[in-house]
Each structure stands twice: as structure tokens, then as C-alpha cells.
Design a protein around this nucleic acid. Structure first.
Lengths: 263, 263
DNA sequence: GATTTGTGTTCAAGGTGATGAACGTCAAAC
DNA sequence: GTTTGACGTTCATCACCTTGAACACAAATC
């Protein structure tokens, strides 16, 4: 009876406690507050007794931190280590740094980002902050829905319509009043992006901010993109044109420094 | 026969595969290059066959990334998630942000850091970069030996000499020609720090840079500290005095905003 | 061409972690 | 004062992960 779908599992079965260890870390990372063992056990559908041992292991290694009461669990300092190391060791991140410096300087210190597509989200991997008072909140490792950002849309445009339809959950979650939520609208937008060669996010992600992005051909399919984020009140046609030129030149410089030719 | 030392283990035994999962992540984070399964197995003293399952699990969840050849393993994008989340959810980090902004502005955009002591290292948790061209290389999550930094020394000074002696490995590893490596020298330095109330790092960590730090009494014993890092050629007595005043005021502001009174 | 050394992968057998029920504890609700 | 529900903890039983050896393969070396 219970053996019916054994064939499906046959392809690959994860090591249970290793898998759960990662589940716990991901759950603690996605939640915004500390949680109890029992709460975590309910959320992850893991028996309390099993979770107990795993949590103790995580705490002992400093990956999970316990409240002074010993009842609430959150991420520990060790969790920071891997993230920092990932950023430092990534090839694309390393090679893009000087170009980001150049883009930041040439643009008069507008906010520049390097982002990577991870399933339905875009993750910031590197940035140069704006010198202007109005600081866009963004941090390395932060993730935003791909459909609501210029970075995300320019990367989604490298996929086929079928892939995009299968990947995203419809209707899309809105971040602002202008976020594209419909399937037809997004596919039309992606078609435009493919034609233009760049993506534009017009207050779809944060009010008052417009972003411009181009995809980097450093992998196939393309996973990385660079963008500028500029407050609308400061934008005019000349600045917009200049921004797109800078992005195109930035892309050229990054790809020129790339060891293995793609496309 | 095999039961002889059962009593010792009784205190606590980690879940083996959970523990190993974390070991793998830590090893991948500390190494600077990608490694093979066999190499990792040797380093961590884990049988290849056991590691095989764990690595597959890590790869499937996106915590570990495989080379296009399928032979070299490195950290995956998922590793970035927990680090970013840790920083965003930490109470001290959240409360310190406005004070860092203030310190950065008041100082004319010198480099400011918030650091936390983790065993023998100091980890950067937040920063404001210098506006000056000479950019100190530093990133959130980066760790530096405590004995070679102002942040570290001011935190070590909150421990007793006995604790410090037991904690660090003597002789200390030098980072520059001026790094304190001897036990007597460091203890004398820490005594001076206790008397002054602040720590100074005079090119002990990077050539040409002097740092100033004060400890924050947000936990007991104190784990967090804030610092300024300033190129020596730009420093004079007036700036040094001003910097120490700013740190003292920053410390006061942070502690004033703290919910639970300490000390 | 044979050998060595590197890689990842598989498998049966034995050791060990997962499990759910029962427990101890505490604080809040009745 | 009792009850209820929340919490973490423990334990014997069984499922399953761990293990070493053997395998398949590639690349460098003899």
C-alpha cells in the first residue's frame, strides 16, 4: 500500500536530517521573529523529538541562537559566515566590482546593483549606494520578486514564454499599485524587453523609483544583470538616455573581461 | 567493552548528519576555492560515501553549487539567504543603523563599523563606507582576528586576563609588522584599553590605517563595539580627539535607545 | 599500453537517528 | 485550586542512514 509511489522517490532521496537542518535554517531565515521548537515543528511537519536533536546541534555550532529564556530560536552568528563567503568567492561578483565602481562614478553616484535570478526572485549580489540623501533600501542577499523589478524582468525575458508561465505563480503578487500582476501584461512586457534589449521598472517595486537593467551574458541562460535605480523626480529624458548608455557600456566591459566566450 | 566512555557522551551528542551538514558548509565557506567530494571527505574525516548523500542534499536545496563538470563544489545561492536574514533580524544591528548614519555624517564620511566578537574573531555586522577614494576593504560578515583590531581589543578588554589567555592561541598571528603577537604585550595593551575606555589599532591590521573603537554595553559581557577607521596621513591630533568624542557620543545614543538597562 | 591516481557512485550489513507517546514544567485561564 | 494548554525533554522501538569495500570512469604518468 505505502509502496505505490516508491518508484518516484527512487530517482533521489535526500539524507533526512541533513535536509531538515537546511529546512530549519531556511525557515528561521524567512520568518521575521524568533520561534519556539514546537512552532517550528508544526510549520515544517517534523516531530518535536526529532527537531529537538537537530536544533541542539545547530545551537552547539552557533548556527542557531537561543533566547536567554532558552525557548525562542533564531539564526546565529555562524549563519553570516557562509553568506559572506559566497559573495567573496563568486566569479561574477569579483569581476563586476570594478565596473560597478566605474558605473557609480560615471553616473554621479546613482544606485547600481548586480542581481541574480533564483527561481522567482532576484537576489542582490553587489551594489554601490547612491550618494543622494534618498537612500533606496537594499542590501546584499536581499531578494525581491523577479516580476516586479527591472533586474528580474530583463532576466525573465531571456526565458521563453512557456518557461516564464510555468515558473511564476499567477496572478503575481503586487508590491506597489503599478506592479504588473497579469499574465498577458507580463508576457507583453517581456516581449518589449526582448526587443529593446533592456528592462525598465516604473515604480513597480517601490514608489518614486525607476530602475533600468541589462542582462549579462556570463552564463547560459543568463542569470545575472546590472541595474540603475533612480528617483523619478530627478529623471529626465537626457538622464534616462545617458543611464541606458552607461548600462550598455558596463555590460560590454564586463563581458569583455569574461574568460569563456558565451553565445 | 565499548560502553566504557558512554558516560562522557551522555552530556550531549549532536545529530551526526546535521552536524556534518554544517561542517561541510563551514568548510566550503573557509576555503577560498571549489573542492572535490574526495578532498572534502579527507579534510573533514568523513567517509566519501556518507558525504556523497549529504552533498547531494545540499546541492538539491541550492546551498551548494556544482561546477559545470559536476566535480567541484562551492557554496550556493541559498547560503546567502541566511546571512542576509541574520543581519536584518538582529536587534543590535537594527538599533545601531541611525547612529551609524549620524556618525558617518558627523565625521565627514569616514568608515564606521559595528563589530561583534565571535570566539577569537570580530565580525562586521554593519558599516558605512568612507567617501574618500581610499576604500578600506571590508564587508558585512567578514571576520578579522580580534587581537589585531580596535574592535576586537576593546571587546577583549571586557574579559579578564585569564579568559583572554585561555581564549587566544599564543603566539598570535601577525597581520602587519605592527600586529601585537606576544602575550605580555597584549595584556598590557588591554590594561591600557580598560583605563582609557577605548581601543586604538595603529596599523596592526592594515598598513596605513588607524582604527578607534568603543564597546557597547548592550549585552553582558559586552559583545558589540563600534569603530572608525581612518587613513593615517589624514589624521592629526584634532581629528583624533574629535573621532573619540564622536564614538563616545555614538555609544551614549545607542545605549540610550536600549530597552533593557544593563550594568 | 599499462599503471597510478584522481574523480563520483553503488551496495549489503550493521549501527544509529527518527519516532510518538509519556513526562515534567510552567503560566495562564477557569 | 484546578484545569488547560504551551513549552522542552526523555525513552524504547523500528526504520533508515552510515559505512567500507568494490566499482566505473577519466586523466595523467610510467
Amino acid at each position: 500500500m505505502a509502496d505505490v509511489d516508491r518508484a518516484d522517490e527512487g530517482l533521489y532521496s535526500p539524507v533526512k536530517s541533513a535536509d531538515r537542518t537546511l529546512q530549519v535554517l531556511e525557515a528561521l531565515a524567512s520568518g521575521d521573529r524568533r520561534v519556539s521548537l514546537a512552532e517550528l515543528a508544526r510549520d515544517l511537519q517534523i516531530p518535536k523529538s526529532s527537531l529537538h536533536g537537530i536544533l541542539k546541534t545547530l545551537v552547539q555550532r552557533g548556527w542557531v541562537d537561543v533566547d536567554e529564556t532558552g525557548l525562542r530560536f533564531g539564526l546565529g552568528l555562524r549563519a553570516l559566515l557562509v553568506g559572506a563567503s559566497f559573495v567573496e568567492s563568486d566569479d561574477v561578483v569579483a569581476r563586476v566590482q570594478p565596473v560597478l565602481d566605474w558605473l557609480s562614478a560615471e553616473s554621479g553616484r546613482e544606485a547600481v546593483h548586480l542581481g541574480r535570478l533564483d527561481a522567482t526572485d532576484v537576489i542582490y549580489l553587489a551594489k554601490r549606494e547612491s550618494a543622494h540623501a534618498l537612500r533606496l533600501f537594499s542590501a546584499i542577499g536581499r531578494r525581491l520578486p523577479a516580476h516586479a523589478t527591472a533586474l528580474g524582468k530583463v532576466l525573465l525575458a531571456r526565458r521563453t514564454d512557456e518557461e516564464v508561465c510555468a515558473l511564476l505563480e499567477w496572478p503575481l503578487a503586487p508590491l506597489t499599485a503599478r506592479t504588473i500582476v497579469g499574465r498577458e501584461e507580463l508576457l507583453a512586457e517581456l516581449a518589449l524587453v526582448r526587443q529593446q534589449g533592456y528592462a525598465l521598472d516604473n515604480e513597480e517595486n517601490a514608489d518614486g523609483i525607476r530602475c533600468f537593467a541589462v542582462a549579462l551574458d556570463t552564463a547560459s541562460p543568463s542569470l545575472d544583470a546590472i541595474s540603475f535605480s533612480i528617483p523619478i523626480f530627478r529623471l529626465d529624458d537626457a538622464l534616462q538616455t545617458r543611464t541606458l548608455e552607461l548600462l550598455a557600456e558596463g555590460k560590454r566591459r564586463i563581458e569583455a573581461s569574461w574568460p569563456t566566450r558565451l553565445r
